[in-house]
């Protein structure tokens, strides 16, 4: 009982520092009107950039020739191996400093590029494993119909491979959304600020960390529904379109009395 005062004080400090409801309420409007949109823009841009890079890198990684695989292998190993924060600085500060300025002096573009490059490295491996898990007979069947390698991959193999790795990709998307907060380091201009930047500004202004909690809630409002959305999509694709029509009568393959055509078949 003698130590009661100390935990009480600590608890109060925690409540005061992170659960100042007034500050949280004050921060939300700016988070929602400015930060949420910018976080979505950066994350969505990075995801698109990442998927494009990843598709290309995955195709290279699947090559029989080592010198085709090599550049993709280096890319994946480097950007999966580097801390995110270093890549953000390399791309956002290093590129413009080296005279490579595809987005001029606007940090927003570099932010998307940096997160996209990191995302691509992880997604490339996800795609590669998904594509490799597709039965080689699928490629053979497509090629036997006269499709070129690239067309067969695009129409037959890659769509199947990607469907199999949707849950892994949901995880990657969540990471992309969270890591978009690190572009704060690039000093976004007014109107470009994402969730974490805005919260951090409020923290600096008020000497109170409660705005971070508000930003956290906003991140969860993005990541959790997205995970469930992708999982729902995955489930629907797995089960295929809902069809429960009985097999057509008189069909010789259907045992008598008719039972669903898939019964007993290992497709």
């Amino acid at each position: 009982m003698t130590h009661l005062a100390s935990p009480d004080l600590a608890a109060n400090a925690l409540v005061n520092t992170f659960f100042n409801w007034e500050l949280i309420a004050q921060t939300f409007p700016r988070l929602i009107t400015e930060g949420l949109l910018n976080t979505i823009a950066i994350a969505a841009g990075a995801i698109v950039v990442g998927i494009v890079i990843a598709l290309l890198a995955a195709m290279l990684l699947l090559s029989d020739r080592w010198w085709v695989r090599l550049p993709a292998r280096i890319y994946v190993d480097v950007f999966r191996g580097l801390p995110v924060i270093i890549t953000v600085m390399l791309v956002g500060v290093g590129l413009p400093a080296a005279g490579i300025r595809p987005f001029g002096t606007d940090p927003f573009g570099y932010a998307i590029l940096a997160i996209g490059i990191i995302s691509g490295a992880y997604t490339a491996e996800i795609f590669r494993s998904g594509i490799q898990s597709v039965d080689p007979g699928q490629l053979q069947a497509a090629r036997s119909l006269g499709m070129s390698y690239l067309r067969a991959m695009r129409l037959v193999v890659v769509p199947q491979g990607i469907r199999r790795v949707l849950p892994a990709m949901a995880g990657q998307f969540v990471k992309d959304i969270k890591e978009s907060s690190l572009v704060y380091l690039l000093g976004l201009a007014a109107g470009q600020r994402e969730l974490f930047f805005i919260a951090q500004e409020e923290v600096a202004r008020t000497y109170n960390s409660s705005p971070l909690l508000a930003a956290g809630v906003c991140y969860l409002a993005l990541t959790i529904p997205m995970t469930y959305l992708v999982n729902h999509l995955d489930k629907r694709l797995r089960e295929g379109p809902r069809r429960t029509d009985p097999p057509v009568a008189g069909e010789p393959d259907v045992p008598q009395p008719p039972v669903p055509a898939t019964a007993g078949e290992k497709a």
């Binding site: 379109p241 078949e265 497709a267």
Partner: peptide, 8 residues
């Protein structure tokens, strides 16, 4: 239908 809904 999808192929998986058919017999072998």
């Amino acid at each position: 239908r999808r192929p998986s809904q058919l017999s072998g």
